[in-house]
């Protein structure tokens, strides 16, 4: 019980903040409670005769018909109870599944989440092409409204798990899975890749940020704009360097010629709370550290060490820092 006290709050399936997680948490508690009762009963039935002084052994061939019948009845009753409990639990989880499946029937938003080694690509679908938004690692959703996540992968199998909001679901290369969830209240919910996917599996986290509708709409409109133009002279230098150096081969910055799609979209990178899929907090220092030595921070990640001198690094960081 004391150990379980550590499970409340940040990234816990026992602290549900949405209907899907609520349903699952209820199921977890009910299963645990029922199994505990059954276990205690079995133990009691086992311990009582063990503790009793054994009766003297009579002739094994002499059977008392009445006693044998009552023993048989007890065994059959226990078997029937076991079968009933198992069928009952199966039905319960079946109905819980139905509830989970119904959450997304009126989803207001479809978000495509693609797993990469080791970050998450997030794409907000829309019928109008100019309203499609691609970002990374942070998923903003309107609080109190159901959203649908369509998940897949480009390399290996990953698993999307935000314990406070829903169960986990695998991201499979070449196959789309659908996960519906809803956050009851605004808040930041941490998630984590839940299927071992290589060297930096542990540093592949994501955040679902639930906001009131107006805040969410403002965020979405803000993110749809092209990147902010560099203001200071240093940032301008950084902008030019970004386009001349290896950055441009993999990353995209909306509104510039940088159009790589194999690495996180940096159009509004400074508006995100973390860097490198939750590995570092967003700050100027961490940005510089990440660019200067990605392999020291996240060994094996696909971000290479690029040769930049101090001035070039400063300029690029100054530019990226302005991409709110």
């Amino acid at each position: 019980m004391l150990l379980l006290a550590g499970c409340s709050g940040w990234q816990s399936a026992l602290d549900p903040k949405g209907p899907a997680a609520g349903e699952l948490a209820w199921l977890i508690w009910f299963f645990t409670a029922l199994c505990t009762v059954v276990w205690l009963l079995v133990m009691a039935v086992l311990i009582v005769p063990l503790a009793r002084r054994p009766a003297p052994v009579g002739d094994p061939l002499v059977l008392d018909a009445a006693a044998e019948r009552s023993k048989m009845r007890i065994v059959v009753a226990a078997l029937a109870a076991t079968a009933l409990i198992l069928v009952g639990l199966t039905l319960l989880s079946y109905f819980a599944n139905r509830t989970l499946a119904a959450i997304g029937s009126d989803a207001v938003l479809t978000i495509r989440v693609t797993g990469h080694q080791w970050w998450w690509e997030v794409r907000y679908e829309n019928d109008q092409p100019n309203r499609i938004l691609t970002t990374a690692n942070e998923i903003h959703i309107p609080a109190g409204e159901p959203v649908r996540l369509v998940v897949a992968s480009t390399d290996v199998i990953h698993s999307f798990w935000v314990p406070n909001l829903s169960g986990k679901l695998d991201l499979i290369p070449g196959h789309e899975n659908v996960l519906d969830l809803k956050a009851d209240k605004p808040g930041v919910y941490r998630g984590q890749c839940a299927e071992f996917c290589g060297a930096q599996h542990a540093n592949m986290s994501t955040f679902i940020i639930a906001e009131p509708r107006p805040v969410f709409d403002a965020w979405l409109n803000d993110q749809l704009r092209p990147a902010a133009a560099p203001v200071s002279a240093e940032a301008k230098t950084g902008h030019d360097l970004f386009l001349k150096r290896p950055c441009v081969m993999c990353h995209k910055i909306g509104g510039t010629i940088a159009g790589g799609t194999v690495a996180p979209n940096l159009t509004h990178i400074a508006s995100r709370q973390t860097l490198a899929a939750g590995t570092l907090a967003m700050s100027r220092g961490n940005l510089a550290a990440w660019i200067a030595d990605p392999q020291g921070i996240k060994p094996g990640a696909h971000m290479p060490v690029v040769g930049l001198n101090g001035d070039e690094l400063n300029a690029i960081v100054a530019y990226l820092e302005g991409l709110k």
Binding site: R245, P299, V306, G307, L308
Partner: peptide, 10 residues
Amino acid sequence: ERDTRPQSAL
């Protein structure tokens, strides 16, 4: 053998 942290060189 993996050397992911080479001498930084463009």
